[in-house]
Amino acid sequence: MPSSASSTAAALSVADVLKQAAQPVLNASTHEQEEAWPERTIISGQLLSREVQAGLYVNMHDVLYLGDCAFDARKERSLSCGLLLAGEVAPIGIRGYDPVIQTRGRPFLFGLGQATQCDRLWRAGTRSRGAGVTLNPDFLERFGADVAEDGLALLHQYLQPGSRSTVLPSSRALTQIAARLLDHPYRGPLASLFLESSALQFVLEIAFLLRDEDRLVRQLGRWHLGRVTEAREMLDARLADPPSSLELARQVGVNLTTLQENFKTAYGLTLFAYVRVERLKLARELILDQGLGIAEAGYRVGFGSPAAFTAAYRRQFGHPPSAERGATLN
């Protein structure tokens, strides 16, 4: 039976936080820390870590830090993958290496090839919401042997001697997995099954992102891939009112022809087609997840009339929006 450490009470003490942090990531004893810290409320919210398979932990948090909290412990050889959905997260200090800094909305990987002393300082008033997984070497070796996926081989590189971290392009799939992990309603055996399945999906999606990034770095070069990624994130942030192609090229620092060619290579779509497809995907989420009517969802993503929205939706998904479960016209 997988082990777990979780706390969903409205308030957590320093000792609670240390126990949570030590189990999946740092594998450290909290005895000395508990003596050093009083039993006082330090966090409001929920903090959970659970071993869903041997060597695979799923981690989730949605918290407000009520006071400063410092943590210093020995982190074992492992790979952590996470996604910050909202708020901020403190950098991870790594003795002998540069600190690891997360970017909101961007998946990050952090690997240590040997046990290393790490520290972290959370400041009072900081809010943070995110989810991810931690992989120990035995899990990665066992899982990699069962799944034929080039990206898994790239994950192994993060367990080589030293410290290595990467920030990957934003991923709608990972964002949805992380949000579902934080908001799932399940209890008991069904919750365990859901957490295990979601953790494995998270690992595979990270592997896909690594594989794609490796391919595109070979094709475009890391600098040009960075510009394309920046352009895509700017479009994602302004789907309803996107910048012009020329403005986009100017903001990311490349000429328009280069941006258009590299964007098509990276994502298989022109700039215009990418915006149209992402608008329709967002509209589908609004209909299915938020219960918006067809006309309202179309308006939200920039369509001037329900008829134009329905026609575009049918071309993209093969059926009209009215065919979605629970969809209504108004």
Rank of each mutant, 00 (worst) to 15 (best):
Q316H: 12
G326W: 06
D72G: 08
P107Q: 02
L280T: 00
C69L: 15
G151D: 02
T229F: 00
I294G: 02
T166F: 08
Q157L: 10
L168S: 02
I177S: 00
D16H: 05
Q53C: 14
L235F: 05
P24V: 05
L256E: 13
R77M: 13
L286T: 06
W122T: 11
T265G: 03
G253F: 00
L64S: 12
F194I: 06
G151C: 01
E51K: 02
L225Q: 01
G318S: 01
T103C: 13
N59Q: 13
A131C: 09
A70I: 02
S44F: 01
I294Q: 12
G226F: 01
V133P: 06
L79N: 04
A295K: 09
V254R: 10
G113S: 06
G105R: 09
G298Q: 00
T328G: 14
R315A: 15
D212Q: 11
D62C: 09
S4M: 09
R123L: 15
G45A: 07
S80D: 08
S78R: 08
V252Q: 04
A15E: 05
A54P: 08
E205C: 03
W223I: 10
Q201F: 08
Y299K: 14
S29C: 12
L83A: 09
T229W: 01
E88H: 09
D241T: 14
L286K: 07
V167S: 04
R123K: 13
L248R: 07
Q46E: 14
E76Y: 03
F143R: 08
P185F: 06
V228R: 02
D68R: 07
L121M: 12
F194W: 05
F143Y: 15
G304Q: 11
P91N: 12
F108Y: 14
Q219S: 08
P242I: 11
R74W: 05
A191K: 15
I206E: 10
W122H: 14
A179K: 11
S7C: 10
G132N: 10
R218F: 03
Q102Y: 07
C118H: 04
A36K: 09
A5S: 04
R227L: 12
S197V: 07
A115H: 04
E141K: 14
E32I: 13
R77H: 00
G304H: 11
R276W: 05
